[in-house]
Write a protein that binds this DNA or RNA. Structure first.
Lengths: 147, 147
DNA sequence: TATACTACTTCAATCGATTGAAATGTTCAC
DNA sequence: GTGAACATTTCAATCGATTGAAGTAGTATA
């Protein structure tokens, strides 16, 4: 198996894992992506989500309604600008997904433990570089969108 | 940045790259997944796609119609069982995506070159193990689906 | 304080994709 | 050969998500 093939299998596994998580949460792809953004990038105003996801403002209202109804996020009024609605993740509300991630971490740690300091540095270097390449190619694809 | 965070950033980059490819091809998530299956797993009967994708047979007809109209796949009658319709990838028809993958490979090779034999072995080991863990966790999530 | 602007929501219309039932053509078992 | 089972297609109905226009509430400018 060459590098490209291994890389492809890797990326497929990642995508399927993401899909499985979304399914488990009962979320479609866009809602899952939105929840990811909210979880990582802290409380976000609805408008920022619209920009980020590339969908209209009214669709965001419906999207946040779904996430809020499911108990994954909360709406709060921005005290600095009361027109704004900040969406924040309602952590801890996520089902036994915590268990899944703990399990994932545990299994990862199980084989990561065998690498020495120098080997770990190589892996981190590889991942860091690959992330950079993927981001660059993603940007390339996005900019060529209108071709 | 700890391992979990780096891993998460990695997987996000992978998912966004996949999304960008689908966008570039003008395909939705399911159609893109179907095309991936067809491309890798050789010609597939329509029924196998239905099973794999978890959607009904009639939806497959519509899906293959879209892929065929876009020029990504072809229908051929299975000579061994003329009820069956085999879907095969129409390689070469994919736009300048070949250029993107060549570019990706080139950029990957650019930094992979600096690793020696032993370091490459570590990276391959890491990826192989991670794939196994992801597959296991994906299966776990899928089986817990009915919770 | 009046006016323009901004952020979000509501609602009806629409879109793309999926379902389920019925139809067609094909193979298998007897 | 007849009848049951199978693979795919067709079609109408439906579903979930998105759009765009209009409405509400809050902020900024002059």
């Amino acid at each position: 198996m060459d590098g490209a093939e291994l890389g492809w299998e890797f990326s497929t596994a990642v995508v399927l894992f993401h899909e499985a998580i979304a399914r488990r949460l009962g979320l479609n792809a866009v809602d899952h992506k939105a929840l990811g953004l909210i979880t990582r990038n802290g409380p976000l105003p609805a408008g920022a989500l619209a920009t980020e996801l590339g969908i209209g403002a009214s669709a965001i209202t419906a999207l946040v309604d779904r996430l809020e109804r499911a108990g994954y996020v909360r709406r709060t009024h921005d005290p600095d600008d009361r027109r704004r609605v900040l969406i924040s993740a309602d952590t801890g509300r996520v089902p036994d997904l915590g268990g899944i991630f703990a399990d994932l971490g545990h299994e990862m740690a199980a084989f990561m433990g065998k690498y020495d300091q120098r080997e770990l540095a190589v892996i981190v270097d590889y991942i860091t570089n690959t992330i950079a390449v993927l981001k660059a190619q993603t940007a390339r694809l996005a900019s060529a969108e209108d071709h």
